[in-house]
């Protein structure tokens, strides 16, 4: 993705990187950040703070919604030196995770840094998440029943 953050659907790109950062671990993000210039300072506008999100299901799988139960979530909002606002909501209770994700959300909105961050941080995280899903899908596929019919027993 070398075309920056503008384009027909900038929100779609932002949704993608926010989702990738939410699914990443702090260890992974910090390891990738270590290979780059130090992040620019930011101001915390909100949090990081821990709270709850109510998960919902649908009756019968596709019907009216119902409240399934809550989960812990950490959120953070930061402003970088350029005035860009970064938001993050991540499942779990790791303040560092939410703050890193918010900081990177702000940085990714900076045209000057976007492509490099995409290449150095977001793309590798997305690749490792895709690989984890593929590995899980392979394990799942190994347990798929292959029926065979006992034909012509005569």
């Amino acid at each position: 993705m070398a075309e920056g953050i503008t384009g027909p659907e900038p929100n779609v790109k932002r949704q993608r990187w926010m989702a990738v950062l939410a699914r990443a671990s702090v260890t992974e993000i910090e390891a990738l950040l270590a290979g780059m210039e130090p992040p620019r300072p930011h101001i915390r506008l909100r949090g990081p703070e821990i709270g709850l999100v109510m998960a919902r299901g649908r009756a019968g799988g596709g019907g009216a919604p119902f409240n399934l139960g809550e989960m812990t979530v950490t959120r953070c909002t930061v402003r970088d030196a350029g005035g860009r606002i970064g938001h993050a909501y991540v499942i779990g209770r790791d303040p560092r995770h939410a703050e890193l994700a918010a900081m990177l959300d702000a940085a990714m909105q900076d045209e000057a840094r976007h492509d490099r961050l995409e290449r150095m941080i977001i793309a590798p995280l997305a690749a490792s998440q895709a690989e984890a899903r593929a590995a899980s899908a392979r394990k799942t596929a190994a347990t798929r029943v292959q029926f065979f019919t006992m034909a012509n027993m005569r």
């Binding site: 709850l52 999100v53 299901g57 649908r58 399934l68 394990k139 799942t140």
Partner: peptide, 18 residues
């Protein structure tokens, strides 16, 4: 803990099944 939000209903058709 405060409640931040209610999520959209989960889409079980799109589940990464195990």
């Amino acid at each position: 803990l405060p409640r931040f939000a209610a999520a959209r209903p989960i889409d079980t058709d799109a589940m990464q099944i195990s």
